[in-house]
Design a protein around this nucleic acid. Structure first.
Lengths: 344, 344
DNA sequence: CTGCTGTCTGTGAGCGTTCACAGTAGAGAA
DNA sequence: TTCTCTACTGTGAACGCTCACAGACAGCAG
């Protein structure tokens, strides 16, 4: 492969015109080869491909976008407050999965952080101006104004986790939180635990609501009365798990298990239990949620619910591209899996 | 602010032409206002700005890029093997910092992952075709072919951490690894420790080499002979820290301190020490590096060296933009800080 | 009056691509 | 033959913007 620009300075890159001349055909034919190769004779296609190889031609996406009106890029929009982004390993897995799934379609991912009101406004403008074809939205908190704005502007949008409080017609991909919670609580009961507390996520997030719902369903199934003294809420942070466990222990010293709505919070719970002199799992069993690196890092390692992050990111990209292609919004719910470790 | 396209479908956005008509001036004048406002009368500028507000105009970057030859976007390129990306919290902080620093200049960040050879080739093409104006490179391993390729293609490039084995003329921003290591080892000696082992990073990374060098310098200063039985290498992963500590204990049971080249590895070291029945810090003091979330998450919490990630990301962006603007490559080295916690 | 600055403004051209259209050639049917 | 159909190819015209240029007008000097 001989690039026509030697090492060193940045020469002007070859255009479709150069390729056409090199291949002895017209711009149109080259363009057709570039876009699927329909209505092109095999010999012409061959010549064009050879010319592309020889010249090192790469399509100028700006020129293409200018006329097609599409940017062939998508945004990955994060509206969480900053700390969560750092703390939560799930974001990383998701981000990486989406980047790779998009790369397979040759679509670059633009990372966008909208933490402040100001950033939110700028980014909304940027997106609605058509600089991306669609948006992968990571923001589970309800009432997020940006989701509504984008939806109303007709921007293809896929959320991670079921958005609360937004009209239906917005696509989302989520793990089956409720079912995962059910599995975990059933598992705890099957171990002979009878006094199972819970540390939920924020109740304005689907993960907060659904996992609590699963917990209540299984207890009801088992004929255990719902006792709100052993239900506390956290914000998915480690510190909030620690605080939550302390409240639980104070309100119900006879606790013999805790279902925690995230691994990070579960780490905090372990710390608090340790400080209170309770052994895990002998005295108190602890079940987490996410199967993040925190789960194996914890000691004892955490029994948890695995969220299928790789599938989630793949599905998000698939649904988004379908929507960009004109299909209707869709909701995808993926199964979770119980992972047994030392803490139960 | 009245957008001329109501909620619902995606109407065609206003062009510079619409703004010109609305303001009663020519395209040229609008363009001048958009690009700094030189040679524009105050009244014309006022009219244009009002028209922009009224129409909700946002510049079409594709059209602009087509003619300027610049994309007004930069790539954030990750060439680490995938696991590190997950495990290492530093990447997140860096990614976030760079995204924000760029956003302040209204420049979007394109996230690029080049884990496999295939991805590497595709991304190199994409970049050298001019689809980004510059690249923020995160890949500390030496001999990374992509850095050399990009440099030779004349693409503005700033690495995070000093690249080893590449000709000089590549910009980088790094924490002062050697000095940080010196601080930590001095701190350990000041605590009365006499037998200080070390778990280094990979010795083909600057962090691996420099931190070890700092360790050796301080020991030499203190008149302690270098003993290679208490020097082991890890790969920055938690597991490698655990394995490293086990080797250290086997080779030198009289160890009373360990300097570990990353917090994550230090977590592993803590695990191994705990299993071996050594108390931290009573029997063995442990010093980490990074001041990542892992440092506070560990128990006991880790004394560590803080890397100024916020400043690093800011500097990377600043140096990159300067280079895009035509300035010469530059190297920036930033000071670290010793953070004392429970482990020493 | 002419000529020279300097500031400000409008206009045509063109960036590299796709799209619509017109046109060619060859195969098969009438 | 002639007409139609299909497969293929080339050509202008956009897309929305910036840039270079030319022109207008004012102020001031000669």
């Amino acid at each position: 492969m001989t690039m026509n620009n030697g090492a060193g300075g940045r020469r002007r890159p070859p255009t479709i015109h150069d390729v056409a001349r090199e291949a002895g055909v017209s711009r149109g034919t080259v363009s057709r080869v570039l876009n699927g190769g329909h209505y092109v004779s095999p010999s012409a296609a061959e010549a064009v491909n050879a010319a592309i190889r020889r010249t090192g031609y790469v399509v100028n996406r700006h020129a293409r976008s200018l006329i097609t009106g599409r940017s062939d890029s998508v945004g990955f929009l994060l509206t969480e407050p900053q700390e969560r982004f750092f703390e939560d390993p799930n974001f990383n897995v998701l981000l990486r999965g989406c980047t790779q799934a998009l790369a397979a379609h040759d679509i670059p991912l633009l990372l966008m952080l909208a933490g402040t009101e100001d950033e939110r406004r700028r980014i909304t403008r940027y997106i609605t101006a058509g600089h991306v074809d669609g948006v992968l939205l990571v923001s589970s908190h309800s009432g997020d104004p940006i989701a509504t704005e984008l939806r109303e502007a007709g921007v293809p949008l896929v959320a991670c986790g079921k958005p609360i409080g937004i009209g239906s017609k917005v696509s989302y991909v989520a793990a089956d939180d409720r079912d995962g919670a059910r599995d975990m609580v059933r598992h705890l009961l099957a171990q002979g635990r009878r006094r199972v507390g819970v540390v939920t996520g924020p109740l304005d997030t689907p993960g907060g609501v659904e996992r609590l719902a699963g917990y209540r369903e299984v207890l009801a199934e088992a004929g255990v009365d719902y006792d709100e003294r052993i239900v506390v809420s956290g914000d998915y942070s480690r510190a909030s798990g620690e605080a939550g466990a302390e409240r639980l222990l104070a309100q119900a010293p006879d606790l013999d298990a805790v279902f925690v709505a995230s691994d990070l919070m579960a780490q905090g719970v372990l710390t608090a239990l340790h400080r209170a002199g309770r052994r895990v799992p002998e005295d108190v069993a602890v079940g987490g949620f996410d199967d993040s690196p925190a789960a194996t890092a914890a000691s004892p390692s955490l029994t948890t619910i695995r969220q299928p992050w790789d599938r989630i990111s793949n599905e998000m990209v698939r649904v988004l591209l379908a929507q960009i292609g004109g299909e209707d919004p869709a909701a995808v719910i993926l199964p979770t899996e119980l992972v047994k470790r030392e803490s139960t």
